[in-house]
Structure formats: C-alpha cells, structure tokens
Amino acid sequence: MKDGDNVSTVMQFVLLGFSDLPNLQGLLFGLFSIIYIIILIGNSLLIIITRLDPALQKPMYFFLANLSFLEIGYVSVTLPRILLNLWTQDRSISVLACAAQMCFFLLLAATECFLLTVMAYDRYVAICRPLHYPLVMRRNVCVRMAVGSWIGGIPVQIGQTCQIFSLRFCNSNQINHFFCDVRPILNLACGDTSVHEISVYAVAILFVAAPFVLILASYSKIISAILQLPAARGRAKAFSTCSSHLLVVLLFFGSAIITYIRPQTNHSAGIDKQLSLFCTIVTPIFSPVIYTLRNKDVIAALRKLILKK
C-alpha cells in the first residue's frame, strides 16, 4: 500500500474467511472439498442425462441443463479460492483478482435470477396455456431466452464492479468475508458511500426483487389453474412438475433477498457470511438433489444411464 494524504491505496486485499476458526482449517478444507466434488458430479450428471435421454428433450429440461451448468460456474467462482486459502493459509488476493471474482459472481447470480424466471414462465405456459405450449416454447424461442438470461446482466454488473473498484480504500485491506462480495468491499471504502449503497439496492431490486415478483405472479396463476383441475391425480401430477423449481426459487431468492435487500443497519459480518455461504454453496448442492428426487422423468433417465454403464 502507498501512503498519501492520510489515505492508503490498497494494492491487495486479505480475505479473512474462516480465520476465526484456526483449529478447524483442515476439517473445513475436507468438508468444502467434498461439497465441491458433489456439486460438480451432481450437476454434471443432470446435464448429461438431459442431453442424452430422448424423454427429456423438452424446454423444461433444456433450461434445467442451463441451470446445472450455471451452478457449476457459480460455485467455481468462490469455492476454489476458499479451498486455496484454507490449504495455504495465504488469504491475500490482488485487487484485480478480487474485482474479477466479484464481477463473475454478480454476472452468474444475475443469470440465475433470469433463468429461474424463465423456468417459471415455462411452467406457467405448460399448465395454464397447454394448447399454446408447443408454439410458444419453440426450440429457437427457448434458445433466445437462455441466451438472454446469460448475457442480460453483463452491462449492469460490469458497470457496478467498475464503479465499486474505482473507489479509494482506507487503511484496512481486510475483507471480513470468504470471497469478494459487494458489501464487504464497500465497507472498506473511504468517505461517503451512500450513492454506491443506493446503486447496490437498485441493482438488487432489478435483478433479484423484480424476477422474484414475476415468479410469484406466475405461480399464483399456476396454483389457481392446478386447483381448477377436476381430478386429484391430475392436480398432483401438475404440481409435481413445478414443485422442484419452486423449492429452488425459495432457497435462492430467499437468501439473496435477505443478504442484499435488507437495510444496511441490520447487517452484520457474521450473518452476511452465513447467508452468502448458504446462497453460494448450499443452493448449488441441493439443486440437483431436489430436481432428481422430485422428478420421476429425471429418476428414470438416471436409472437408464446407470444400467447402461
């Protein structure tokens, strides 16, 4: 760091992560390694079976494959760095690497918000407009929706990352977090950051709150349509096709809303770390489990793949 005008220019940060648990570093490394392997295997299996099984060549499973690929990327932005820090006990990270990690994290988080919204729309059309479903959810339309989800957040999230890292940071360079997230970085900035705080809230509302409201609106229509079905068996089958997605939505958006939209006065470093850990690690590990255990088509495809092997 270079001194000048009583302010230091930070050249690198230190991710404190789990440094407050010195006796558990080895255990945490083993635990997170197992979690990472499970996430990679679980989501890779979902991608493989949705690509290979003829019964799963439907829009819902096309989006599920995109979501599984996203989860692999999402967790790979944070977990390898956590594992490296735990293994080497060297928690330093350059400003450029920190900015890159934040940028990719925000981009993938925005993509997940959009993909979950598109998947809710797919279920809405399938259940509420079944006769129009083949026309509305054509292959080229699904591809455009997926591409839009992947690239839709790029301008805003790159802009937000550049805005945050254009700030000057005060004497402390210690990030009380296990990866470079928005709020822990802002806490190190010099002077008044209220404008940047407002910007963070605005982006969170745009990419988290708005998609969540759209998903809730879709499911209100879906549930209403399901309840109007004459046969109980038909209602159970219709609900089973969207219950997995709804569970993942509640897990992901619930933790994201609490983390990024609750008032700044209610923030504490410990709670933020726990919520971020849940959002970045727990959701990706539960996502393939939920979709597999609650979907008969996926279970059947997985069984066929295992028997072939």
Score class of each variant (00 low, 15 high):
K2T: 13
K2M: 13
N6W: 13
V7N: 10
V7S: 07
M11R: 12
M11T: 07
F13S: 00
L15K: 09
F18M: 07
S19G: 03
D20I: 06
D20Q: 11
N23P: 04
L24A: 11
Q25L: 09
L27K: 04
F29I: 09
L31H: 07
S33N: 05
S33E: 02
I38C: 14
I38Q: 04
L40N: 06
N43W: 04
I47K: 07
L52P: 09
D53N: 15
A55R: 15
L56R: 08
Q57L: 08
Q57M: 03
F62V: 15
S68M: 04
I72Q: 01
V77F: 12
L79K: 12
P80C: 03
L83W: 09
L86S: 03
L86E: 02
W87F: 15
D90F: 06
I93R: 09
I93D: 00
V95L: 14
C98I: 09
M102N: 00
M102S: 00
F104T: 06
F105P: 04
L108C: 06
L108W: 03
A110S: 11
A110D: 00
E112W: 05
C113I: 09
L115Q: 03
V118H: 03
A126L: 13
R129N: 07
L131P: 03
L135F: 13
R139C: 03
R139N: 04
A146W: 06
W150F: 12
G152R: 06
P155E: 00
Q157G: 00
Q160G: 01
I164Q: 01
F165E: 03
S166M: 11
R168C: 15
F169R: 04
N171Y: 10
N171C: 10
Q174R: 13
V182A: 01
P184C: 04
I185K: 06
D192F: 11
V195F: 11
E197F: 09
E197T: 14
L206K: 12
F207D: 00
A209W: 15
A209T: 14
V213T: 09
I215C: 02
Y219D: 11
Q228T: 14
P230D: 00
A232T: 13
K237C: 03
S240I: 13
V248K: 05
F252K: 08
F252R: 08
G254T: 05
G254D: 01
I257W: 10
T259V: 09
T259L: 15
I261L: 14
P263N: 01
Q264N: 07
N266Q: 08
H267C: 03
S268K: 07
Q274K: 08
S276P: 01
L277R: 04
T280P: 01
I285Q: 00
S287D: 00
S287A: 11
V289A: 08
T292F: 15
N295W: 10
D297V: 13
D297S: 13
L302V: 12
L302A: 15
R303C: 09
K304W: 05
K304A: 15
I306W: 08
L307M: 10
